[in-house]
Design a protein around this nucleic acid. Structure first.
Length: 906
RNA sequence: GGGCGGUUAGCUCAGCUGGUUAGAGCGUUGCGUUGACAUCGCAAAGGUCGUUGGUUCGAGUCCAAUACCGCCCACCA
């Protein structure tokens, strides 16, 4: 007999690295049926996920942990099902975020601003930064066990992807869906760039509403007006009142004077104005307010811009030129007070637009930017979800998607940054635009246009990072080239990401995919939620409640973290994660380890050469197998429905609560019988443990891979034919996913039969514990089991062993004339158990116990009798009714037995 | 203003084909270690499933209303 080599404790630190290396070296991460193989079969449909590319210089957080765990689970599951599987990894250049990091570093190390070293040097410096830190995040993703095909790793600023970005831009431009022009956009004064509507968040903050007088020219009259931003008065080009407002009717058409500047502006009527709010009159600043901008368009008002790019006041602000906007607010208001124009200030809760990145206050401003005309793209994207070509999981996000797509505004795609894809447009000497796939082509166009060689200059702006991310599912596969990868792997299968970037990323990928490839980029969108702390608070450095996944992995293992994230989350909902939870799952891994050790030990004790031909499975064998089948079916059903968390939970409960707690205990006894029984048990052990490890593998890949290797070796020593043809593949990662399986000669209804034995064992153990019978002392027992006697007798060695009964004085019989002398009786369904513990019993207490049992049972009998005499008996399906009848009969039997025992006690 | 999600044990959450005794982990309490596991085992306490009404033989589960919490979108100066 060979002693198994499974170490006593699980050292996940060592195991994880070694296992990952083994997977990678064996090239298990690469898809089978590679499109460049000569034998490639295009009819086999692959399963493909594009990774949500993390910021190239980012640091691993739990959000990454969740998506990696989730996607890796899907990938591993499909890989095990034998489907060619590709998970494309990569990272995003993350324009603003990365540029800010490098700017900060530049200031720290050299005390310089980026303008001082110039664009070229700055971009080169950023590339260096990327080369230095860009590998960290992908390394960390490996640690999570991600089975991505690293040979296909991509970066959004790679040559190939840059070609894709330019191609996409040029195509849209040529189609007339990209335009450039001055529009009111969201300006980030600190970053000195435009940002899209999505990048602005509104926060409620206390502020003031300022009331003041708008004087009417050549008159003593004035219109009272309220504003939250007095400095914008400098840019007013009208005062608007409601056309039906009697108070202000007389002013419509008159001329008002801008405070301090005395600029003349018209008083107009527009039904947008709310008569009830503020003073009922509205100042109009088309240059710095989106609603005013629209009113301005309706009335053809002049647009006056009062801000510089750094949000100081420009020359249009007269005496305030050069002041910061908030200083100007104070100063202008003070001057107006002096001029007698101020009415009052009241407290008011404002909604301040703030930059999603950095939180500075965003100023609406007129600026010349590039835009994508989005409506045509959005319509196609809407249609793709409506007609089911794309399914969103969970379903309730479909509505959110529709709502956004139906109300979408043109997308501002230009950013005044240096790090990113530069807009492929060049300007001739007179500003003529030449959009081309390269500078050479633009030059040719320009020369042809002017009829002579001219100097052209490229647009300085770069594209919004999301413009390139939007191409990700196909740009990473080689688009615009018709590469074998693109042909075979596109469209991809599932897009898995957080709901917080549904609009930023998912919606744009759908629009881009349809526009450029004519196909949906994926058939399913799976959205997960945000990871919060155990109290449901967002994790933040200021709150100090951030859980670092790297620390967690160090302390409790990657599998424990993954299992916690996967089992704790359900589609589209936020997940509260606590270290306690991870700890519990580390314990789960430990249990898995130890259970396997026991299995291996038992396998050693069983004789491999025994003849099991005539031996049947025990009830316990049948029971665990029947449960295994149920669990397998459940897990498969749940996986199909994307309910991975519930699947993991069921595996956890089954493995721990049934396999480890019960079957392993029984297996010990069965193996100790030796001979064929031991061998038969060993076979059952291998089969169940094998299936458990397979189904847990997508959740906890490292430990299961490790244990499965040992199990396989043990199976080999045990005499199993260990070969891929025989279901023992080279590694668990590529092993076949289990289907519910019949076992020859097993009893399908073992679950109900066996549960009686479990109840009996529990009852005996409880009484022993309650009466403080020494754990080691063996007592006798008599069990009467009526019709169940035969099936129960088969388990008698098990019951004896698990309850520490003395086999000499233990029997299971059909009935008994009288209660044995000196025993105390327990009633379990149709069975009665007599234990020789009468001396330990206080008859009064025992009476009380029996009476309360009887009461409980009587209640059930009443309930069921009522139920069965109600319309239920006629209307409910026969099997459901029968079940209740059986139950009632069982309760009645129990009640009788308890009653007779009470009688005996007197 | 529009939309969505949640409300189940002290805490965090399952319970997604409606089936009659609602589960887990953690926490609490008691008992238990010489062989798989104290990263453990055995057991106990703890819930009128937010409220009201409806559908149904039957509702934590389906429908409607309502309260509270949270989120998203739109942005009344």
């Amino acid at each position: 007999m060979k002693k198994h080599m499974l170490p006593k404790t699980y050292d996940f630190r060592k195991t994880e690295g070694r296992i990952y290396q083994m997977w990678e070296e064996s090239r298990y991460f690469e898809p089978t049926n590679q499109p460049q193989d000569p034998n490639h079969d295009p009819s086999i449909k692959p399963f493909v996920i594009s990774i949500p590319p993390p910021n190239v210089t980012g640091e691993l957080h739990l959000g990454h942990g969740l998506f990696v765990a989730m996607e890796d689970l899907m990938i591993r599951y499909n890989r095990m099902r034998g489907i060619p599987t590709l998970w494309v990894p990569g990272s995003d250049h993350a324009g603003i975020a990365t540029q800010l990091q490098v700017e900060k570093d530049l200031m720290k190390t050299e005390g310089k601003r980026r303008e001082e070293i110039g664009r070229e040097a700055f971009v080169e410096r950023t590339w260096e930064w990327k080369r230095k830190y860009g590998g960290i995040i992908t390394q960390q993703i490996r640690r999570l066990g991600a089975s991505c095909d690293w040979s296909r790793e991509r970066f959004t600023l790679d040559n190939g992807l840059s070609v894709a970005v330019i191609e996409a831009f040029v195509r849209l431009y040529e189609k007339g869906l990209i335009y450039r022009g001055p529009r009111l956009i969201n300006w980030s004064p600190g970053l000195q760039t435009a940002v899209s509507d999505l990048e602005v968040e509104y926060s409620e903050e206390p502020g003031k509403l300022y009331y003041f007088k708008y004087r009417i020219k050549d008159s003593e009259d004035f219109i009272p007006v309220a504003t939250t931003r007095p400095e914008t008065i400098l840019g007013d080009t009208a005062v608007a009142v409601h056309p039906d407002d009697e108070r202000f009717q007389k002013f419509i058409g008159k001329t008002a004077l801008v405070p301090i500047l005395d600029r003349e502006i018209p008083v107009i009527a527009d039904s947008y104005v709310d008569k009830e709010f503020g003073t009922g009159a509205l100042k109009i600043t088309p240059g710095h307010d989106i609603n005013d901008y629209e009113i301005g368009e309706r009335h053809h008002l002049e647009i006056v811009s009062i801000l510089n790019k750094d949000a100081t006041i420009n020359q249009n602000g007269g005496p305030y030129a050069g002041q910061d906007r908030f200083d100007c607010r104070k100063n202008l208001w003070a001057d107006m007070a002096e001029a007698g124009l101020v009415i009052k200030e009241t407290d008011y809760t404002l909604k301040i637009p703030r930059s999603q990145r950095g939180g500075e206050i965003i100023e609406p401003m007129i600026s010349t930017q590039w835009f994508v005309e989005i409506k045509p793209l959005a319509e196609a994207a809407l249609e793709a979800v409506k007609d089911g070509r794309i399914q969103i999981v969970p379903d309730f996000f479909t509505k959110v998607y529709y709502n956004w797509m139906e109300n979408i505004e043109d997308w501002c795609i230009s950013r005044q940054l240096w790090w990113g894809h530069r807009i492929p447009v060049w300007y001739g000497p007179d500003g003529e635009m030449f959009c081309a796939r390269s500078e050479e082509l633009a030059q040719e166009k320009a020369n042809a246009h002017y009829g002579k060689p001219v100097t052209i200059e490229q647009d300085p702006d770069v594209l919004d990072t999301w413009f390139s991310s939007g191409l990700w599912p196909f740009s990473t596969l080689g688009w615009p080239d018709e590469t074998p990868d693109l042909k075979y792997f596109y469209p991809t299968s599932v897009l898995e990401t957080g709901y917080d970037i549904l609009f930023f990323w998912v919606a744009r990928m759908i629009m881009s995919g349809l526009e450029y490839t004519g196909e949906v980029p994926f058939h399913t969108v799976y959205l997960h939620g945000i990871i919060r702390d155990e109290l449901g608070r967002k994790m933040s450095k200021t709150t100090g409640n951030v859980i670092d996944p790297l620390v967690v992995m160090d302390e409790m293992g990657t599998d424990a973290l993954r299992f916690s994230l996967l089992v704790g989350s359900s589609p589209g909902k936020d997940t509260n994660l606590s270290l306690k939870k991870v700890e519990a799952n580390r314990n789960f891994a430990n249990k898995l380890w130890n259970a396997t050790r026991l299995v291996l030990t038992l396998l050693e004790q069983a004789p491999a050469d025994a003849d099991t031909a005539d031996l049947e499975w025990t009830q316990a064998d049948s029971w665990i197998w029947a449960r295994m089948r149920q669990i397998t079916n459940n897990v498969n059903r749940l996986f199909t429905a994307y309910q991975y968390g519930e699947a993991g939970r069921q595996l956890y409960d089954f493995f721990w609560g049934e396999f480890a707690d019960w079957y392993l205990e029984i297996a010990k006894i069965q193996v100790s019988e030796g001979g064929a029984r031991a061998k038969k048990t060993a076979i059952a052990l291998i089969k169940t443990m094998d299936k458990i490890l397979r189904m847990l593998h997508p959740f906890t890949p490292f430990i299961t891979e490790e244990l499965w290797g040992y199990l396989k070796e043990a199976a080999n020593h045990f005499g199993a034919e260990v070969s891929p043809e025989n279901g023992w593949e080279d590694a668990l990662i590529i092993a076949q996913w289990p289907e519910a399986e019949e076992l020859e000669g097993w009893e399908e209804d073992a679950i109900t039969e066996f549960s009686l034995a479990m109840e009996i064992i529990r009852a005996i153990r409880n009484l022993r514990a309650e009466k403080q019978v020494k754990p080691g002392s063996r007592i006798g027992a008599t069990i009467t089991a009526g019709e169940q006697t035969n099936s129960l007798q088969e388990l008698s060695p098990t019951i004896a062993a698990l309850c520490h009964l003395n086999p000499e004085s233990f029997q299971i019989i059909e009935t008994l004339e009288n209660k044995p002398e000196g025993t105390v009786a327990l009633v379990v369904g149709p069975a009665e158990i007599f234990l020789p513990l009468f001396d330990l019993i206080d008859p009064e207490e025992e009476k009380k116990r029996l009476q309360s049992d009887l009461e409980e049972v009587s209640q059930q009998i009443d309930r069921l009798e009522k139920l069965l005499s109600s319309p239920f008996a006629q209307k409910a399906p026969a099997d459901v009714v029968q079940k209740e009848r059986d139950r009632l009969a069982a309760f009645q039997e129990t009640a009788e037995k308890i009653q007779s025992q009470l009688n005996e006690l007197g």
